[in-house]
């Protein structure tokens, strides 16, 4: 069954704030084979709190992660993320389209700092695969 289009515009309670530490950035950087001592986090680091927010969204809408394919992602930064930031992500659904039995969900995640200032905006395209034929 396609997703209820009424989820467009819906907002979800923010996940607990994510504290950016030198260690959390180093772990992220080293997984990509690079090294890190100090300074700004990589541009895709905000996926860490954004992924938590996405899991909250999936749970709220009773969607199964195993049926979700990440179709596209963009981050637009107001400033780089740095250790010491405490980030909060507010996710909302921008659009839902149903194509060939799959739902194409566009989400927008606003990442703000402890002062409430916008740090970056993440937009994701999530493909929610419908049930297989005959199941």
């Amino acid at each position: 069954m396609p997703l209820d289009p009424e989820i467009v515009g819906r907002s979800y309670p923010p996940a607990p704030p994510h504290e950016v530490t030198t260690d959390s950035v180093r772990t992220f950087v080293e997984a990509t084979g690079a090294s890190y001592d100090a300074g700004p986090a990589p541009a895709t680091y905000p996926i860490v709190p954004a992924f938590t927010a996405m899991m909250g969204f999936l749970e709220a809408e009773a969607l199964d992660l195993s049926r979700i394919v990440h179709g596209a992602q963009e981050f637009r930064h107001e400033r780089p993320v740095v250790p010491g930031d405490v980030l909060t992500v507010a996710l909302s659904v921008a659009s839902v389209r149903s194509i060939g039995g799959n739902d194409i969900i566009a989400t927008s995640s606003e990442v703000t700092d402890a002062d409430g200032a916008l740090v970056c905006t993440g937009t994701a395209t999530l493909v929610h695969r419908g049930p297989e034929e005959g199941s």
Binding site: P42, A43, T44, E74, F75, R76, H77, P80
Partner: peptide, 9 residues
């Protein structure tokens, strides 16, 4: 690091 303003794919 820190020079990227937008990135997407």
């Amino acid at each position: 690091r820190g020079r990227i303003a937008t990135i997407g794919a």
